[in-house]
Design a protein around this nucleic acid. Structure first.
Lengths: 352, 352
DNA sequence: TGCAGCGTAGAGAGCGCTCTCAAGCGGTCG
DNA sequence: CGACCGCTTGAGAGCGCTCTCTACGCTGCA
């Protein structure tokens, strides 16, 4: 127990106070607080005691002022359309990010983009040196975010491969994405291995790289996919249903469908059911994402391609931390760490 | 255009630099940057120009160091169970918070509670003076959060009336909640006005004040509700269905149901349909929340009690700002501003 | 003419911390 | 035995900003 009175509200004890109590200098206390390297064990303990007794907590602002490190990272959430992070995908990814940041003793500053006109504010904030880095999600190809971030000169990592023009022209931003193309290939190969011969695809929006990569994966395997086997959706349940109806009209003989996400698969499933087609007997169905709330709830449960979404969130943080540390060692050095592609895994349930 | 070279990456211009360029003192620049009160117009303009030319952005850490104001507020999201902010309710509230914070030029620091053992970390962070205040959501009565926050001595506002023991014993934390009880009364009265005589209630969990308040509202109107008219749910769709089945077994004669939220209403609706009961002809149904993604999607669309969730989020921020400003004027003064109860509104659709 | 009174600017002292640099203190080696 | 080296520790100079206090020039009034 301390013999000193508790400091009044608002006046926290400083390094100075701890130093005085421990009978050492400020510098020594600072060393101990920051790991205690190069300080005699006896002193370390004395200082630790003083810290404990006074309830000392370092002043973050003072520390940031001299180290130029904020201990905070921005997570930018753009809301271009309807679904934000009520989307389970976002929730999982943000959770992964949050966990990993906590492990790195770093705070998560949430920047919610309110609309197209709001990007300027975001840019100002990022450029203002409030955060050490930024994490963002690539949603649409024409999204301004990548260029805003580049202009703000703040280290950043994207979730999902950004698709803006010039992405390859030395303007690369590291990103974390799952192996959309490989996963799609695996899904289609699985359908073929089941003996299916007319495998259709319901694709996602053109302006999202994930959708395009999945389409490419489908094409990789089905070089000679017949006509009328590809329909366009937009990742919604409704669009999946519509696309399924279209496909059935053009190719009533199809015996399998691979959809670019689970939500569209559930729409497709509904239409198949309505038409009296049995899944998987008449038509086998494979989705993508393994959004369990959907994939396990459908009847029959959906065979789908799983990606480790929370893990991708964590990876985004690790990648960013690597950039940050590299920058610290050698500022401005062009040691852009590569992006990471995480593997996918086919989860077999009953639909295929 | 500036004739000076752009400063190297990482070395932003300081007040000093702006002062030199404008030919004034640091103090004057500071005054201009902070509103420009008490500075001759001519100088104000000269300083503004210099700021523009150099691209000066104030150093947040330095400012915080002296003002003791962070310009940041924590939003604490506890995840005690299954649904987090994939819950549309949370999303809307956080959006309101984010918008209002932006309007106050304040940052949102997201604190995601990882589990029961994580509260200590949260407490440490809050106590560490990183943020000016905290916003939290009251989920369960036995939640530790209120006491953690109190111990950290950080101004806070709750979303939803906290129900911890001693809430009334001078330990009051301001909160924002909707008029759960009044809304429930309105819902039940509406059912009675339709001529219904045996109005049942599917209640939410005992340990959430919102659920209890809604139950109280129901009882306010139906002082003499007959036996077997109240069933217990837990706010999930599934529990609504189960409770509905129970009610029908006990009181096959019921002609109306008021559920404590929309999700349970949709569960109840499903069961009513399965039993061949028509809504609203045989049984009228009223929900709570006006979660449009549910209420408008059901067949028939749900009559329900709407609360302005985003508005409640904004109110939480305004309330916190008031506490903060009061604290600044007179630190520690016991001017705890009262809590706010927002009105509800009955939204009539087809189910009642 | 002298002096109070006002409005505007600058000087300077910190805010709490980190980090460099030099001093002190054995112990070792030539 | 003195020079040197490595390990600890302390002194002190800032980091960039705010804010008080003082200085200064001007007007207005006695």
């Amino acid at each position: 127990m301390s013999s000193m009175p508790e400091p009044a509200h608002g006046s926290r004890p400083t390094l100075e106070a701890v130093a005085a109590r421990a009978g050492v200098s400020r510098a020594t206390v600072s060393r101990v607080v920051n790991g205690g390297a190069g300080v005699r064990q006896a002193l370390v303990e004395k200082v630790r005691e003083a810290v404990e007794e006074l309830g000392y907590v370092p002043n973050h602002a003072a520390r940031t002022l001299v180290t130029r490190r904020n201990g905070a990272v921005a997570v930018i959430i753009a809301e271009p359309e309807f679904r934000v992070f009520s989307d389970p995908f976002f929730e999982q990814q943000v959770r992964g990010i949050s966990r990993e940041l906590t492990a790195h003793d770093t705070q998560l500053v949430l920047l919610w983009v309110e609309g197209p006109g709001d990007y300027e504010r975001i840019g100002r904030y990022l450029g203002g040196g409030h955060v050490d880095g930024a994490l963002a999600f690539s949603v649409h190809n024409d999204d301004e975010l990548p260029s805003i971030i580049r202009r703000a000169q703040v280290p950043a990592v994207f979730g999902g491969r950004p698709g803006w023009p010039g992405a390859t022209a030395g303007l690369a931003v590291p990103y974390v994405d799952c192996d959309n193309r490989g996963g799609a290939r695996e899904a289609v190969r699985h359908l073929l291995s089941l003996g299916r011969e007319r495998v259709a695809h319901i694709a996602g929006p053109h302006d999202q790289t994930s959708a395009m990569d999945r389409l490419d994966g489908y094409r990789d395997v089905l070089l000679d996919a017949g006509p009328g086997l590809i329909a366009q959706g937009d990742f919604t349940e409704e669009s999946g249903a519509r696309a399924m109806a279209e496909l059935l009209e053009q190719r009533p003989d199809l015996d399998a469908v691979f959809t670019a996400n689970d939500l569209m698969a559930s729409g497709a499933l509904r239409v198949l059911r309505e038409r009296g087609l049995r899944v998987p007997e008449d038509v086998a169905l494979v989705g993508f994402d393994d959004m369990t709330s959907i994939a396990e709830a459908t009847d029959p449960p959906l065979t789908t391609v799983r990606q480790d979404i929370e893990g991708m969130g964590r990876l985004m943080v690790r990648l960013l931390m690597r950039v940050l540390n590299a920058d610290e060692a050698e500022p401005g050095a062009g040691s852009t760490p590569g992006s990471v592609i995480t593997p996918t895994e086919l989860v077999r349930r009953a639909s295929a």
